[in-house]
């Protein structure tokens, strides 16, 4: 029993470290990707290829002067970024990183916890995240921050609806809300063709759902083209205008953790998680297969993180009324239509 506990705690620590590490290197990757997309080289002074840049940035943020505005609510001002970071990190608990490892006959789950309402849990935690922004923006006692916070909360509420509705169609098909179960179901044969083994990914059944999901994920992460809460041009940084030092760092960092987690969600909900097509044909030892699966999962995550950045440095941001119109008048009706289509499809194929 104790060994179970130690294993779980070890896994939690590893997942925690990986989330933070990926987020740290996402900041470097963001700068590198943006540079490459703009025919530049990007940071390359701190270590080879700028490998040490995240460390330099972190050290810099820690040594910056910490300013709390005179009329700010001190308690809420500190609570804001902490809450945002905590919720960003909490989401990774239900993501299945791979098949269970075989430790001499004892199976070890590569998932911190398998709750049977995993998808709901993720949505619940993510929607708490908006409080981090709201509280921070409110406590700053600054009109720009408040504007940013207002935008963030209304945007999150609008897009969470469409996101939830797009997931409903997926849950109708899988019949389970446990992420482990959903990923495991995607290991089968695509459209029942025995050749396409390990390709039974939900993207092939739910393309419209995935499209809605990815658009909403961009909005939930406050990424371009939906980065209105912090848009530098009009709101001077939005909800984190008044923040400095590591509190600002937490906000910026949590954004990357959010990106990592939602990439993991997209990979596991729609792109088969740790499933690799045709892997079974190679007849690898079981644990090697698990390892390859984990690697494949991370490749998918990294691709999605790259996609986030790719989009950011390609298209400009929406106007606010366009954003609301897209959310309420386009994505939500589309998501409902998707549910109906899925229902019909399920009846027809039964």
């Amino acid at each position: 029993m104790e060994i179970m506990w130690i294993e779980k705690i070890l896994l939690v620590v590893i997942v925690f470290a990986i989330s933070l590490g990926t987020a740290a290197y996402s900041t470097l990757a963001e700068r590198k990707v943006s540079a490459f997309l703009q025919d530049r080289i990007g940071p390359n002074r701190a270590g080879i290829f700028g490998i040490l840049q995240p460390i330099a940035d972190g050290v810099k943020l820690f040594f910056k002067e910490e300013i709390i505005p005179a009329n700010a609510d001190r308690f809420l001002f500190v609570l804001g970024p902490s809450l945002f970071m905590i919720t960003a990190l909490m989401t990774s608990a239900v993501i299945p990183w791979g098949k269970p490892l075989d430790l001499g006959g004892r199976m070890f789950d590569l998932q911190v916890t398998d709750i049977n309402i995993g998808v709901l849990y993720v949505f619940a935690v993510v929607s708490i995240g908006v409080y981090g922004i709201m509280i921070g923006g409110w406590a700053s006692n600054n009109k720009y921050s408040l504007m940013g916070a207002l935008r963030a909360s209304s945007q999150m509420i609008s897009y969470e609806l469409a996101m939830g509705l797009s997931i409903i169609a997926l849950i109708m098909m899988s019949g389970s809300m446990s992420l482990k179960e959903i990923v495991a179901q995607q290991s089968g044969e695509l459209y029942g063709i025995s050749f396409l083994k390990g390709m039974n990914w939900n993207i092939f059944y739910q393309p419209l759902g995935f499209l809605i999901f990815i658009v909403c994920a961009f909005a939930e992460c406050n990424r371009t083209p939906f980065d209105l809460p912090e848009c530098e041009a009009e709101l001077v940084g939005g909800y984190h205008t008044e923040y400095s030092s590591m509190k600002l760092g937490l906000y910026l960092f949590a954004e990357y953790v959010n990106m990592f987690v939602s990439s993991a969600m997209m990979a596991s909900l729609y792109f088969g998680g740790y499933n690799v097509p045709f892997l079974e044909m190679l007849n690898l030892p079981y644990n090697v297969e698990v390892f390859v699966g984990v690697l494949a999962f991370f490749t998918k995550i990294i691709f999605f993180i790259f996609f986030f950045m790719w989009i950011r440095w390609t298209i400009p941001r929406f106007r606010y009324d366009q954003l609301m119109k897209l959310g309420w008048k386009v994505l939500i009706p589309l998501a409902i239509l998707n549910i109906l289509l899925t229902g019909f499809g399920m009846i027809l194929t039964k």
Binding site: V33, L37, Q38, D39, W310
Partner: peptide
Amino acid sequence: GLMITIRHFFRRKST
């Protein structure tokens, strides 16, 4: 737009 930017990704850098 994505295709345009990805082409620049592999282009020679002018730095």
